[in-house]
């Protein structure tokens, strides 16, 4: 389950940022995980519950943004939104597409109390 290593990396990044900030506590952690990032959201949330134990994030609210992807058809040039791993061009039905966005895997922000 790679979601656990992802969760541990998230905690790592957040702890470092928190330490730099000199704040007293973290109340919210915002993540951006694209629909095509290859992450199972349920598995990630479960893994996060484990990974935050005994860290500054233990009581923080987890906010998960799940942006849809954007693809471009290499045959007809159409740009279109994608929400699933497997997709075809809505216009010409082709599978020769390039993914422009949708694989985001980011720690966006922390909400902290001083």
């Amino acid at each position: 389950m790679h979601e656990m290593s992802i969760a541990l990396s998230i905690v790592d990044i957040a702890e470092k940022e928190f330490k730099k900030s000199g704040a007293a506590k973290v109340t919210e952690l915002e993540l951006e995980i694209g629909l095509l990032a290859g992450i199972e959201y349920d598995a990630l949330e479960f893994a996060m519950q484990m990974a935050v134990k005994n860290t500054v994030l233990e009581k923080a609210v987890l906010k998960l943004d799940k942006p849809a992807g954007l693809a471009k058809c290499n045959d007809c040039g159409l740009e279109f939104e994608v929400k699933e791993m497997i997709f075809s061009c809505p216009d010409c039905k082709g599978y020769n597409n390039s993914l422009i966005r949708g694989k985001e895997l980011r720690v966006k922000s922390l909400l902290v109390d001083d």
């Binding site: 992802i6 990396s9 998230i10 790592d12 990044i13 957040a14 940022e17 928190f18 900030s21 704040a23 007293a24 506590k25 109340t27 993540l31 895997l105 980011r106 720690v107 966006k108 922000s109 922390l110 909400l111 902290v112 109390d113 001083d114």
Partner: peptide, 16 residues
Amino acid sequence: AQQRVIEVEQDILSAN
């Protein structure tokens, strides 16, 4: 307490 936002904007896989 004072609340503030820390913009992190860091790729989770950046270390790897």
